[in-house]
Design a protein around this nucleic acid. Structure first.
Lengths: 131, 131
DNA sequence: TCCAATGTAACAAAGGGTTGATACAAGCAG
DNA sequence: CTGCTTGTATCAACCCTTTGTTACATTGGA
């Protein structure tokens, strides 16, 4: 079960799986990296405020703030007090597309296996989705 | 950086990323699920002893024991005191939630295409990720 | 200028995970 | 039977994360 946070401005959704032992701030961090890497969020796009996202996800503001802070430090986001948080102008993407696609595929396979799917089923579903 | 634990008996390798905030027991649990799901470990294959794996990974025995215990409870492993731990005869594969998997595949394909990847590339990346 | 919005910082309290040690229980081989 | 191996249980101590709360600094618009 997960709580979804619709983000009309960026057209993206971030969620936190309460059954995942991974700390919420880390789940958020990874999802934003994936969203930026995949192009779902582009430079200049504004992210939800820490209070807004925290409220949507049922978390404390400080928890979301930590995710934003770490992403800021890594160059993914630009945050300014009073002005909000936006996707950085030059996200850390050296070998952009190839690396992003590989990361995307790895993440997909990991999640699919987490659902209990075997390799054959995973490939079949991807083939279906391609058509 | 990660510490690797070679497992000659099963021909598999399990590692723990000390920079990943995800608890070690959870990292181990997921990797074993992946190894069994992918067929790298087959029913009857013996896993390292809790002390052996803990020593290789630099963890406490109880930490590895917890991963084994959770996997046992979920039906992935069979563990008997004094006899060791082996892959269960009937790992929980049909648990594949068809709807969730389809949604996951659709989302993955959507993002991959957003990156500009063609169908062949997408399939190749998934195949790579499966191995 | 004034004020609301936003990110940041600090704090104590609570909960969970890990460690390291020890002890115990159950299987297996001699 | 005896001894070794293996998984399990317990314990206290420590560290990390989260929570609420409050306060503060900065930004931008009325």
């Amino acid at each position: 079960m997960s709580v979804a946070a619709d983000d009309p401005g960026a057209g993206a959704a971030i969620s936190v799986d309460v059954f995942d032992p991974t700390p919420p701030y880390e789940q958020i961090r990874r999802q934003i990296v994936a969203l930026v890497s995949s192009g779902a969020l582009t430079p200049g796009d504004r992210l939800p405020t820490v209070r807004q996202l925290a409220n949507d996800l049922g978390l404390a503001a400080g928890t979301v703030a930590r995710a934003y802070r770490e992403l800021e430090g890594a160059g993914w986001l630009n945050t300014r007090r009073g002005a909000g948080t936006r996707v950085g102008a030059a996200p850390p993407r050296p070998a952009a597309d190839a690396a992003a696609l590989r990361q995307l595929a790895d993440e997909f396979v990991r999640r699919a296996r987490f659902l209990g799917a075997d390799d054959g089923t995973i490939l079949r579903r991807v083939t279906d989705a391609l058509s």
